[in-house]
Design a protein around this nucleic acid. Structure first.
Lengths: 332, 332
DNA sequence: CTGAAAGCGCTTACAG
DNA sequence: CTGAAAGCGCTTACAG
């Protein structure tokens, strides 16, 4: 048992307040310091964080709200946040909402109640309820993945990733394209990536493009893809996420199509699995872990009332793999 | 701002202790109850958890120590724990140790200091330091994934999974087998699975089996596999984890071998990716999420001093997919 | 059923 | 530099 501050005050023969001052880096006389240090060593004393927080009315814990734990993007982002926060002597507390927006709201209030120093939200959609909650709690807030002009946000460069990936696909000669996207409620994934892609389309004369919408799940994408393959016969699928691309891949296999010969596929994300599968998936890779680290740094700056830019944009990289035929052009 | 218990006592015109009793489900008169409820509703009061914990000297938080966040097994287990704990009105706090045993030890002490009601460890290796720490902290402990006679543990049925998978492979007619395992420091993965597999071997007359050891990472397994393919020319790789199997898969591709025609592969785990890849991976599937749920229930039982069996064994299932040729026998 | 009082382990002005 | 005292927001015997 670690004992209390009174114990070590008694053992050291000083007042509690002196011990507290020592603990918090205040100035104490050399002799006093030694006595206290000795007493702490003997007893293995560590302060009770609840008592500390009760008085200080603030913790060094950053609450992080995450829609799901079982996604590459989430876990990499969390790892980045966690590692950086540790370096800065902060702790991360995770709240998993299992993709319930309602639970996100609950978590915001609950974190505030638990005196979190700040709250990071791995965002999918920002509703009025979110805005209300953020304004109610008066705790520093940082959004990751979605931007909002009222709050500090760190986003991936979805627009330019869409643009560059679009240019890449068009440059290879593809002109019959199925764009398989998601709901526009998700601004980053559903809107920005598509907008970027559309901008690339403007730079080319003729192109047969169809836009479709599906769910985030592999199985749903697979079902959508099967139908699109038979109705539209695209030469390439541009998918709004890597998971959707994986669904298309499965659909292509089950339809007996060869990749990339019969049909090419691209994704967004750069999940680990895209490298493992065969053929590898051509995709726009984002840097989730790095983004998490940056977010952690920004959060700590916010907590300490240092200036932070309202919007930070994390970079991306087009990864060329085998799911796109780079000689498609010549095959025409 | 949520105010304090004194505020609502004042508004309701009762004593703080009465409010506290109400909050904790004690008996209060009907009229009192209504006044308090009204005051709480008006102010949006929620108790300060630090003050509660300071007095109660105990929280309803279960500290969960996890070696890594970016693995299917970890995240599924965490999801199971989290969901079940929520149902039981407990909270989960995650500590990610980034595969450092030292950090595991630190986390144990730190959790105890933070008055966690219990500690769950997703274990990889139990050292003397672990045992010492568990004995020091006097907090209920539950191990997941590894067993130890001194502590409550929940394990996957590694031995029988190894046995059944071995029987399956042998039954299909494979007789030139490379078993690609891991360090024996990991009892569950490195020892038990292999033991089970060896038991299956005993039931067959002649069989050319070589045992190898590699790391958990895909890239390391890939390197090991390439060498084994060229030295030993096995007809099948039995891999101690799905990730290792993925490494072998990549090695096979890069050597120009067809799966399962030229070489078959099996894994352990049942990771999501094993279903996505093509060909699908034959593997012994464990039920991580379910195990997490059970662990959460057991932990809460331990916290409330209800009896819990020292050792719980979670089940498994052999998933047949295309990475093993089920007609291999006839091809001989 | 209800309330006054003490105390959980710390921190923070305020004196000295 | 050091200490006595008050207080953070709750809970818990103990009376009534």
């Amino acid at each position: 048992m670690s004992g209390t501050i009174s114990d070590i005050a008694r053992i050291a023969g000083v007042a509690k307040s002196t011990v507290s001052r020592f603990l918090n880096g205040g100035s104490v006389g050399e002799a006093t310091r030694q006595k206290i240090e000795k007493a702490i060593k003997e007893t293995g004393y560590t302060p009770n964080p609840f008592a500390q927080s009760l008085k200080a009315k603030k913790t060094n814990i950053i609450g992080t709200i995450v829609p799901r734990l079982d996604s590459y993007a989430s876990s990499q982002t969390l790892i980045g946040i966690d590692e950086q926060l540790k370096k800065l002597n902060y702790q991360m507390l995770i709240s998993n909402t299992s993709q319930s927006l309602e639970r996100e709201i609950e978590s915001i209030y609950s974190f505030a109640n638990q005196k979190m120093a700040g709250i990071i939200l791995l965002a999918t959609e920002i509703t009025e309820m979110h805005i209300q909650a953020f304004e109610d709690v008066k705790v520093p807030i940082l959004l990751i993945g979605q931007e909002h002009q009222k709050f500090h946000s760190l986003i991936h460069d979805d627009f330019h990733a869409g643009y560059e990936l679009g240019r890449y696909v068009l440059e290879k000669g593809y002109r019959k394209i199925a764009y398989l996207g998601v709901t526009e409620k998700d601004i980053a994934v559903g809107v920005k990536r598509k907008q970027g892609f559309k901008k690339a389309l403007e730079e080319v004369q003729e192109c047969d493009v169809q836009f479709y919408e599906t769910e985030f799940k592999i199985s749903a994408a697979q079902t959508s893809a099967r139908k699109i393959i038979n109705d539209f016969h695209p030469s390439i699928f541009v998918c709004a996420t890597d998971n959707i691309a994986l669904g298309v891949l499965k659909a292509a296999y089950s339809e007996g199509l060869a990749i990339p010969k019969d049909i090419a596929i691209t994704g967004f994300g750069g999940y680990e699995v895209t490298e493992i599968i065969h053929p590898g998936l051509t995709t726009a890779k984002f840097f989730y872990k790095e983004a998490g680290e940056t977010a952690a740094r920004h959060m700590v700056d916010l907590v300490n009332e240092r200036p932070v830019e309202k919007l930070t944009v994390s970079h991306f990289e087009i990864i060329e793999r085998e799911s796109v035929d780079i000689n498609f052009n010549h095959a025409l």
